[in-house]
Design a protein around this nucleic acid. Structure first.
Length: 488
RNA sequence: GGCGGCGUAGCCAAGUGGUAAGGCAGAGGUCUGCAAAACCUCUAUCCCCCGGUUCAAAUCCGGGCGCCGCCUCCA
């Protein structure tokens, strides 16, 4: 089955056919490094990391470029505010971005270029646009002349006249057309600048992506991604610049991820309802966040709230527990032979199909939500076998081991299940225990006391202890091997 | 006002022509001294409403209602 992707340009799902067989060139807009990243950045980057991994998984050789926009008005503002040089702002937040992405378990892109390291390339494109009549200089600024690009707004499917009619922007009288946008901004006194044919200045917002994608991926490449909010104006303007300069199609497939809402509200700085990645990771394990982000289709809006995160936590834990069950069962006593119970046979079947189900789900526009459903399905049957089969045969363990590997393989694409199950469950437990008012020693002591009470059949005292701990959010789990505890 | 998207059980969420995945929560059962976990069974006669196309529609078309996003920096 072939990979199909939703292309913003056509508004439809299309079969993905790379320009060069077996190779994919992909560019994703990175961040402007002037502040800490928030949960919306987390989604965009996790989503495209998943896409990157899947493309590789199906055997494609992917060149993945994700840029840093390290010169921009916001960076300059922040530097002025903090009284430090602009490059200290960008350097600091590049480092913070890298930390966040590493914490989220992202793979590194093939290239991570910076705008300021491509000034000559940027100037060259601007010069070419001026030369071809697609751009004009005014008092040190250079603007793109949208009237010369017939396909303008083909991505966002808007209409130039109507946009102007409804424009909320103050019109800059120096522009020929209010919709013309800056390719190059002349420097005001004290601002960072680079020499150019139009005087000292710096690149406009959109041009660096045209320059860097062209440098690393060529004039036409396969996939360009980013958040939905970049469709207009950023990506629209990239198309205009690149196609006007090169006279060739810029990108074949445009992929855009949906927004993160906070408690069903749009997340925005003005509403103050945004969370940085670091804040979220203080409260939730990185893998839980990743699981949450991938549990909905990447184009759907997703609602960030405690209930949904807690559900993600429960779901991820369920699958990890299933993996831990496999480890437990197969480490125990086994019998030679290949007899399988009904459950064993069902598991055999599920394991056989899981790879195909995964590919079908992911081939359909990277449907990670459906892919995860397949894992839950497999987990249920694993648990059934673990609960019902008193005799564990070598054959069953082989199948369980295959199931375990299948989950790990899927996890490798989704960036999940990277920990040993026991290690993950332990990590979660101690994380939650740290929030408790009660010490581990105290819990263990009470469990010991209860064990004595149970031995002497003093179930009244036994239940008192259970209830006492339960009131402190500790659940006791009795098993033939003894009593363990978990945080509720 | 223009453009785009969405509306599936209490909640989250797949499903774009063949008769409703999965998770959470809930009910009953198995197990347990009692529990928890796990497993089993059940929980949408129906997919916002009204028309239409079709042998067949949550899925396609038309109309309506509601919600959201973009149009300004934004992942």
């Amino acid at each position: 089955m072939a990979l199909r992707v939703y292309n913003t340009l056509s508004g439809k799902k299309e079969e993905f056919v790379p320009l060069a067989p077996g190779k994919v060139k992909m560019y994703v807009c990175g961040v402007t490094v002037y502040d800490h990243c928030h949960i919306g950045h987390a989604r965009a980057n996790v989503v495209f990391d998943m896409i990157y991994r899947y493309l590789k998984y199906v055997g494609l050789a992917v060149t993945y470029v994700r840029n840093y926009t390290d010169i921009d008005d916001k960076i300059i503002n922040r530097a002025n505010r903090d009284g430090i040089p602009w490059h200290e702002v960008s350097e600091r937040f590049i480092a913070e971005f890298d930390k966040d992405m590493a914490a989220l378990g992202l793979e590194l892109p093939t290239h991570q270029p910076k705008a300021t390291e491509h000034i000559p390339e940027i100037i060259a494109i601007v010069a070419r646009l001026v030369e071809k009549g697609h751009a004009y200089a005014v008092e040190g600024d250079v603007y793109f002349r949208v009237a010369t690009f017939a396909d303008y707004l083909k991505l966002s499917k808007r209409n130039l006249e109507e946009m102007q009619a409804g424009a909320r922007v103050e019109v800059d009288g120096r522009k020929e057309n209010p919709m013309d946008f800056a390719l190059w901004k002349g420097a005001k006194p004290g601002e960072p600048s680079w020499e150019s044919p139009w005087g000292a200045g710096r690149p406009g917002w959109h041009i660096e992506c045209s320059a860097m994608s062209m440098k690393f991926l060529g004039e036409t490449f396969d996939i360009h991604g980013g958040g939905k909010d970049l469709v207009f104006p950023h990506h629209e303007n990239e198309i205009a610049q690149s196609e006007a300069a090169n006279g060739r199609p810029f990108v074949n497939y445009w992929l855009h991820n949906g927004f993160v809402n906070i408690n069903s509200e749009k997340m925005s700085k003005s509403l103050g309802n945004f969370f940085t990645i670091k804040e979220v990771l203080e409260r939730y394990d990185a893998e839980v966040l990743r699981f949450f982000l991938l549990s909905a289709h990447y184009r759907s809006p997703i609602d960030f709230c405690d209930q949904n995160l807690n559900e993600a936590h429960a779901g991820l834990e369920r699958i990890y527990k299933g993996l831990a069950e496999i480890d437990r069962v197969c480490a125990g006593k086994r019998e030679a032979g290949g007899l399988l119970s009904d459950g064993g046979r069902e598991l055999e079947e599920k394991v056989r199909d899981i790879g195909l189900r995964f590919r079908e789900a992911m081939d359909d526009d990277f449907n990670s939500a459906l892919a995860i459903a397949g894992l839950f399905d497999l987990t249920r049957v694993v648990n059934r076998v673990a609960a019902e089969d008193s005799v564990v045969s070598d054959r069953l363990c082989e199948i369980l081991a295959t199931a375990r590997q299948a989950v790990i393989d899927v996890g490798r694409v989704l960036g999940l299940f990277t920990s040993e199950p026991a290690e993950y469950l332990g990590r979660i437990k101690s994380r939650r225990a740290a929030e408790l008012e009660i010490s581990t020693e105290e819990i263990e002591g009470l469990i010991g006391e209860r064990a004595l009470a149970r031995k002497s059949k003093d179930f009244k005292r036994s239940d008192e202890i259970r209830d006492l701990l339960l009131s402190r959010n500790i659940a006791l789990l009795d098993s033939p091997l003894g009593t363990t505890w978990a945080v509720k």
